[in-house]
Simulated scan of single mutants.
Amino acid sequence: MKTINKTQQGFTLVELIIVIVILGILAVTAAPRFLNFQSDAKASVIDGVVGSLNAGVRLVEGKAIIGGQNTTDISCFDNNAVRAANATTEVVNDTATDQVTCLTGTDVRFGAPDADLGSILAAAEFSGGIVAHDTVSGAAEVPALTVAAGTVVIANNLQDLRDGRCLVTYTAATSATARPTIVPNTNNCN
């Protein structure tokens, strides 16, 4: 037969409740430090923007190559094709940026979308609160948002753009041999 040791005791209900309360307090204070889902989500959105931009740029580049417009300074993308810009009827000198732009369609420089808001939005559709600004649209913000000429900045929201964090910078191609650059900045996505 088995003998029971009467000196061995278990935990009381009060002791168990105290331990559970202490563990609960630790979980509430420590978990948010380890589980920062907001910054991970914002960084993932930026990665998605980069993927969308890359796909849009590749599509326009392919259409420009097919149309023989991948080495020209200005051509226009509309009706699912890149066509030569007729200097007398299809382009206008934009006094705000001092560049020649298309009257219809979107601007394509050296086979890739130009660094203006219209061209970027035509190449890659953004939704869900994503904001993008170029030199002209950034200057129209109150207070003005500084955007370098020849670039478009894209972020989760306007505050991230203003703070210069968690954003993507698109810089247009400057020659037939220089591809556009798409640079993500996922530092400090909080």
Rank of each mutant, 00 (worst) to 15 (best):
G105Y: 03
G118F: 02
N70A: 12
V131R: 07
G67A: 05
V49K: 03
C102W: 08
K63Y: 06
A55F: 05
T106N: 07
A155I: 02
A122G: 02
Q69F: 00
A84W: 05
R165I: 15
N54E: 15
F126L: 10
V153N: 08
V82H: 05
Q159C: 04
V49D: 04
N93E: 11
I154K: 05
L121W: 06
V108F: 02
V152P: 12
K63R: 15
A122D: 13
A123V: 00
G138N: 08
S127D: 11
I66G: 01
T97C: 11
G51A: 12
G111H: 01
V147S: 02
R109F: 01
S52F: 03
G62Y: 00
D47K: 11
S75H: 04
E125V: 11
L121T: 15
V100T: 14
G128V: 10
A87N: 13
D107V: 01
D98I: 14
A81D: 06
P113A: 09
A123Y: 02
D116E: 12
R109G: 02
I65P: 02
V142R: 07
C76R: 03
V100G: 01
D98Q: 15
A55P: 03
D94F: 09
T88G: 09
T95D: 11
D73M: 11
L167K: 14
D98L: 15
S137Q: 03
A85N: 07
V142A: 14
I65L: 06
K63W: 00
A115G: 10
A64L: 08
T135S: 13
A112S: 13
V91T: 14
N93K: 11
I120H: 00
T104W: 09
N79V: 10
A115C: 10
V49E: 04
T88E: 12
L117W: 07
A122E: 12
T89S: 15
T135L: 14
A87M: 13
L167V: 06
G68K: 01
D134W: 04
A122C: 03
S119E: 04
G48D: 08
T89R: 09
N156V: 14
R109Q: 10
E125T: 15
N157D: 15
G118T: 09
T146R: 07
V147E: 03
P143V: 08
G128Q: 07
V92E: 12
G67S: 06
G129R: 03
S119P: 05
A139D: 11
L117C: 13
G56F: 03
D78N: 14
L121I: 09
L161W: 04
V82W: 02
R109C: 02
K63A: 13
N54R: 12
N70P: 02
T95M: 10
I74Q: 06
A132V: 09
R165A: 15
A85E: 04
P113K: 02
V152R: 07
S119H: 07
V49I: 15
V153W: 08
G164A: 12
I74D: 01
V147N: 01
V50R: 00
N79E: 12
V142C: 01
L121E: 13
